[in-house]
């Protein structure tokens, strides 16, 4: 799950950036062949991304490739490059229906060399996509998670994008719930105000509080602050450790119900404690 905590976008046609993919502290890198690459350079970016993944595989990070959308003539070649590079995840932009994912998945299946372990993420960034999140999240198969794209969404809505983000509260909540219901990762939208570090810290704290698995980032300068926001506090860690100790002791002693500080230790509490300890590692 930690792989979804910080997911850093990097332009797919920039060799310097690609070479530093595993040095910037992000848990995942999203090698972008879509918006960050001019139409005339799609071919070169695709080749560069493939070679970066095969010859200079970033170590210790999840490698995601953002392909071009289904409405473009590029996406099939992009998928082929992602499969050849054995990307961990293919990120489909402008995802609006479960069928979009099925089409990508079929293309991966068909690709020579097979994409056995390759998973999918849906970038939901339109009102139609948001209205369909439950169906998208439930499409199963390779789908590992969903990412909210608030820039395109708010532009389409005619909403004003603010650091506080009231305009995307509904979309966040709706997507989050759909993901939770299906047990897939829910990843929050990037914070677009690149130099507003205070705003970033608040925005990331809000995402962590809501229960998002993590957050996408458009600047390497955002990695540290977002990681901090998703890091449990020392008090939380101490609490979680005591919960686990208590639960283990109860199991050893064959006790059914136990309590800690007057609170019943049941399965949801144990799961929460486990998650805190996992995030604290």
């Amino acid at each position: 799950m930690k792989a979804f905590r910080t997911m850093l976008f990097m332009p797919g046609n920039n060799p310097g950036m690609l070479a530093s993919a595993d040095s910037l502290g992000a848990d995942s890198v999203i090698l972008d062949i879509e918006d960050a690459v001019a139409k005339s350079e799609k071919d070169a970016a695709r080749i560069l991304v493939r070679h970066s993944l095969t010859d200079l595989r970033p170590q210790g990070v999840m490698c995601v490739v953002r392909i071009n959308g289904l409405e473009t003539p590029f996406w099939r070649d992009d998928v082929a490059a992602a499969v050849a590079g054995r990307a961990d995840v293919v990120l489909l932009p402008k995802c609006e229906r479960p069928d979009d994912l099925r089409e990508i998945s079929a293309c991966i299946d068909a690709a020579s060399g097979g994409g056995d372990g390759i998973r999918l993420m849906a970038l939901v960034e339109s009102s139609r996509g948001i209205e369909n999140v439950s169906a998208i999240a439930a499409s199963g198969g390779r789908l590992a998670g969903m990412l909210l794209g608030a820039e395109d969404l708010t532009a389409e809505m005619g909403a004003r994008r603010t650091p506080e983000g009231a305009e995307i509260a509904y979309a966040r909540g709706r997507m989050l719930m759909a993901c939770k219901a299906c047990g897939i990762a829910a990843v929050d939208t990037p914070f677009p105000f690149v130099t507003d570090m205070e705003g970033l810290a608040k925005d990331a704290a809000c995402a962590a509080q809501f229960g998002f698995s993590g957050k996408a980032l458009i600047s390497p300068h955002h990695v540290h602050a977002v990681k901090e926001a998703f890091m449990p506090t020392e008090a939380q860690i101490a609490w979680a450790a005591r919960v686990m100790d208590t639960a283990k002791a109860a199991e050893r002693d064959g006790k059914g119900a136990v309590s800690l500080d007057g609170m019943m230790i049941d399965l949801p509490i144990i799961k929460r404690a486990e998650r805190i300890l996992q995030m604290a590692e």
């Binding site: 060799p15 070479a19 071919d43 070169a44 080749i47 560069l48 493939r50 070679h51 010859d55 200079l56």
Partner: peptide, 16 residues
């Protein structure tokens, strides 16, 4: 450029 970049650029220019 690293070797993998040179190879990628050569592949791109050859295709073009």
């Amino acid at each position: 450029a690293l070797k993998c970049t040179i190879v990628a650029r050569m592949e791109a220019v050859a295709a073009r």
